[in-house]
Structure formats: structure tokens, C-alpha cells
């Protein structure tokens, strides 16, 4: 445990010289007042489940930020053998604040954690979140992040697959406008054989917004029969939007199946024309195609209520953007 929170004095902030912070300038996103501010004593949420349950159990957490705060909240989730839980994490707030968060997840043998993050921080907020996830044999961890808030957000996940037969799925949707910046940085570490990992992210970028996706699948020598998959699709709704993608595979085992892909671009002309030739106006055709683009990734949300909620939010975002 670290000592009582001390101010950073702007000195320890990562810079673009560090490879994993190449596309995200935290120092520029934070005002000096915030980065020099002594962190407040922040909330900690600790969730522990020791036995099975029916899987229908849901923990719903709200993290709020307020003007001028430098928070360092911590979320710890421990599921012991055979436990199953859904955690919904909501982020909101008002004004300029820095939410510098740590998430510690431990998924025990044969346990299942469904983690849904709905990030709607205020337009001036900065959120940095370091998630450390360890999963034991036969465990399942799936995380879906909806990211529509904050001036700058960085969601960094380090998942360690420690035993055989694990399934780890990291998915998300970014809905960005104005000068928003959202960074998803993933290290998926396969340390054991026969595990499956998936990453599927879709981003909608309007105005001058910027998205970053850095995903690395690291397959250790003993992690034979790994099945790793990684895909980032970004749709640019404006010519000044930007997406930086860096998919990476680092493989030391010789019997694995790993693939990655990334696309960035505006809507395809062909389906647009096809829909118009069937009577849809240009605007209606665009809306339908963008909805479809988003809906495909929302299918990954395992919890039906959460899925409908996120779908509603995405719908609202779209209809206000495309009016």
C-alpha cells in the first residue's frame, strides 16, 4: 500500500516518449491545477463473492466527479471459485476533474465476471483507468466499455490468463465528438494453454475527435493452442477526426491461432447508394448504416438490460449528431 496521497507536481506524468503513451498526451489534457493538486481521499469499492449464485446477480456502481477534484478511486473485484457476477460501472460528473482510477479484478477458477462500463464523464473531465485483471483456470471475464464522455479518457487493461481454458473478451464502443480523445490500450497476456481471447472495438469519431486503439496479444511459450482475436473498426464521420490504431501480436508458442485487424475510414459509398436507390434519403441511409455499425458490437454485451440501455444511449447520441 502506498503512503498517503502526495501531489504529482506534474513530474511523473507519462510523456509521448514512452511507447505506450505515444498517442495520448496526458500532461496536455490536464490543467496544471489538477495535475499538481493533492489527490483527495477517494472512494474504494470492494466486491467479493465466495460462492456460486445463479449468475443473475448485478452490482451497480456510480462514480461521480466534481469540479476541481483529483480523485484516485479504486475498484476491486474478487470472485472465488465458481462465483458469477455482473458489475455495471457508471461514470458521470460535472466540471473539470481528474479521475485517476485503479481497477483490480481477480477471477477465480471457473468463476465468471461480466463487467460493463458506461463512461459518461463531463465534457471537461479526464479519466485514466488502469485495470489489472487476473483470471484463473476455466474462468471467464468479459468487459464491455461504452465510452462517450470526458475530454480525455484512457482505459488501459492488462489481462493475465493464468490457467488453461480461460475465455477473456474485451469489447467496446467509443462515441466521440468535439475534441474528445479516447484511448484504449490493452495487453492480453496468455500464460497458459487452451485459452481464448477476443478484442472487438468500434469507434464513431465526429468533429475533431481522436481515438486510439493499442492492443497487444502476448502469447507465452507454454500457451499452446491459444486462440486470440483482435479487431478495431473506426468510422470517421468528419474529415478532421483521427484514429490511431496499433494492433500487435507477440507470439512465442508454435501452435496457436491469432489474428488481428483494423479499419479506419468514412462510410462506404456502395451500401449508401444501394439504400438510396431503394428509396431512403441520404440522411436516413447514413443513420441506418451507422446504427448497424454500432449495433454489431453492442451484441457483445451479455446482460440484456445493460445492452438495451447502451443501445438507447448510442441511439440518442446518433440522432443528435446526425440531425
Amino acid at each position: 500500500m502506498s503512503a498517503f496521497p502526495v501531489p504529482l507536481d506534474g513530474q511523473d506524468l507519462p510523456t509521448s516518449k514512452q511507447e505506450e503513451w505515444k498517442y495520448t498526451n496526458l500532461a496536455r489534457a490536464l490543467s496544471p491545477e489538477l495535475s499538481n493538486k493533492r489527490p483527495m481521499v477517494s472512494e474504494e469499492v470492494f466486491i467479493h463473492r465466495s460462492c456460486g449464485g445463479n449468475g443473475g446477480q448485478v452490482e451497480d456502481i456510480l462514480w461521480e466527479g466534481f469540479e476541481g477534484q483529483h480523485q484516485q478511486p479504486r475498484l476491486a473485484i474478487i470472485l472465488e471459485e465458481g462465483a458469477e457476477l455482473t458489475v455495471i460501472e457508471r461514470h458521470r460528473g460535472a466540471g473539470a476533474y481528474w479521475k485517476n482510477m485503479v481497477t483490480d479484478v481477480t477471477v477465480g477458477p471457473n468463476a465468471k465476471l461480466h463487467h460493463i462500463r458506461i463512461v459518461e464523464d463531463s465534457a471537461e473531465a479526464v479519466q485514466t483507468n488502469m485495470a489489472r485483471v487476473t483470471i484463473a483456470r476455466d474462468g471467464v471475464y468479459d468487459c464491455f466499455s461504452m465510452n462517450a464522455g470526458g475530454a480525455m479518457t484512457r482505459h488501459q487493461i492488462h489481462a493475465v490468463l493464468r490457467g488453461p481454458n480461460i475465455t477473456c473478451s474485451l469489447n467496446g464502443v467509443n462515441l466521440l465528438k468535439g475534441s474528445q480523445h479516447a484511448d484504449t490500450t490493452i495487453l492480453m497476456e496468455h500464460q497458459a494453454p487452451h485459452c481464448v481471447s477476443n478484442q472487438f472495438y468500434r469507434s464513431l469519431l465526429d468533429d475533431q475527435s481522436r481515438g486510439v486503439f493499442q492492443g497487444k496479444v502476448h502469447v507465452h511459450r507454454e500457451a499452446q493452442k491459444t486462440d486470440g482475436y483482435q479487431l478495431s473498426n473506426a468510422l470517421l464521420l468528419s474529415p478532421s477526426a483521427e484514429m490511431d490504431t496499433k494492433p500487435e501480436l507477440e507470439i512465442y508458442a508454435d501452435d496457436v491461432k491469432c489474428s488481428h485487424g483494423a479499419t479506419t475510414g468514412p462510410l462506404d459509398e456502395e451500401p449508401l447508394f444501394c439504400l438510396r436507390s431503394r428509396g431512403l434519403s441520404a440522411d436516413a441511409a447514413r443513420l441506418l448504416l451507422i446504427q448497424a455499425f454500432v449495433n454489431e458490437v453492442l451484441e457483445k454485451i451479455p446482460n440484456k438490460d445493460a445492452r438495451e440501455e447502451v443501445r438507447g444511449k448510442a441511439e440518442e447520441w446518433l440522432t443528435t449528431r446526425l440531425k
Binding site: 447508394f273 444501394c274 438510396r276 436507390s277 428509396g279 431512403l280 434519403s281 455499425f293 449495433n295 454489431e296
Partner: peptide
């Protein structure tokens, strides 16, 4: 006329290479 107005006026083009539209199911379309 715009393409959609031509369709409403009664023109229909059956495409040589019908385009795939992922995420939009047939009945919605």
C-alpha cells in the same frame, strides 16, 4: 432527381453485384 426520388418515381435497378450490408437485417431493410 436524387437516387431516392428516382426510386419513388418508379425506377428500380437490380444490381449486378448486390452489396452486402452487415448489421442491417433483411426485414428492417
Amino acid at each position: 432527381l436524387e437516387p431516392e426520388e428516382r426510386a419513388a418515381a418508379g425506377l428500380f435497378l437490380a444490381f449486378q453485384y448486390p452489396v452486402e450490408i452487415p448489421g442491417v437485417n433483411m426485414s428492417t431493410f
